[in-house]
């Protein structure tokens, strides 16, 4: 509780400072509306039903792209990390595509998939795939051989090695990659929605910019930050629930 109070102090101080700076007209309040005004904008947008729809649309795109991109990244990373032939064929392909910044693909995705859901999901998929591939590839290919030796000399059969030893040993690396990808998914999503859309948090940021409603725009920016924060915390919570050993392994050794 004390910890919580201490942690909140900085944030409260920042809000008060922000409120004061824009109230005293030090900066044009039209450009820099105070937090009270941003919050009331958020409240009325929520009551009108527009904001929940935007959040729903954005979260759905982010989750769909993230899940698909992670599955693909994990799978390709795992087979190329462990099986020589796949490594030889797939890894160069991935390495050629990886340096392309995903934002550069936004116009192409719109040309290919239009302004609807498909282009957003594709872009998030693309953005998530590479970091997950890297972590899965490295995690799986660098499993300590002692784990495999130990398991084999205790009598595990070859076909059980994957699930019982290789995957869990690679998990800490993979989890790091997944967590990085969550914030990346939101960055890509905002860029994709800004470039062309009819709905979504990123779309509103760009739309209110065009009509110069800065308080609503800032409201959506804050909202984006909140979504990212919640996604990250949810992921951390789920990992700790599902893998109680994970926290212990990260803190020690």
């Amino acid at each position: 509780m004390r910890q919580f109070a201490l942690r909140s102090t900085g944030i409260i101080f920042l809000l008060i400072l922000w409120e004061l700076v824009s109230r005293t007209n030090l900066i044009d309040p039209g450009l820099f509306p105070p937090p009270s005004q941003v919050i009331s904008a958020l409240v009325s947008l929520t009551l009108s039903g527009q904001l929940p729809k935007d959040v729903f649309a954005s979260v759905l795109r982010a989750v769909a792209g993230f899940v698909l991109g992670s599955i693909a990244g994990l799978f390709v990373g795992a087979v190329s990390g462990r099986i020589r032939a796949f490594d030889a064929v797939l890894t160069p392909v991935v390495q050629v595509l990886r340096p392309i910044p995903v934002i550069a693909l936004v116009p192409l995705a719109i040309v290919w998939f239009g302004l609807g859901e498909a282009s957003k999901i594709f872009l998030v998929f693309w953005g998530v795939f590479f970091p997950v591939w890297v972590s899965s590839y490295l995690g799986i290919s660098r499993v300590d051989k002692n784990y495999i030796w130990a398991a084999r000399s205790i009598g595990i059969r070859r076909e059980k090695l994957w699930l019982q030893v290789i995957v869990p040993a690679a998990l800490p690396t993979i989890i790091t990659g997944l967590r990085t990808s969550i914030s990346l998914a939101f960055i890509v999503l905002v860029a994709a929605e800004m470039a062309g859309s009819y709905l979504g948090v990123g779309y509103r940021i760009s739309a209110y910019h065009l009509v110069f409603q800065i308080d609503k725009m800032m409201g959506y920016i804050v909202l984006m930050g909140a979504l990212g924060f919640i996604a990250d915390r949810t992921f951390a919570y789920l990992v700790n629930r599902a893998l109680p050993w994970y926290q212990l392994s990260v803190n020690q050794d």
Binding site: W149, A150, S153, V165
Partner: peptide, 11 residues
């Protein structure tokens, strides 16, 4: 086999 670094499975 018993290893110097134990090689227990941390998971």
């Amino acid at each position: 086999v018993v290893f110097q670094s134990f090689v227990l499975f941390p998971w």
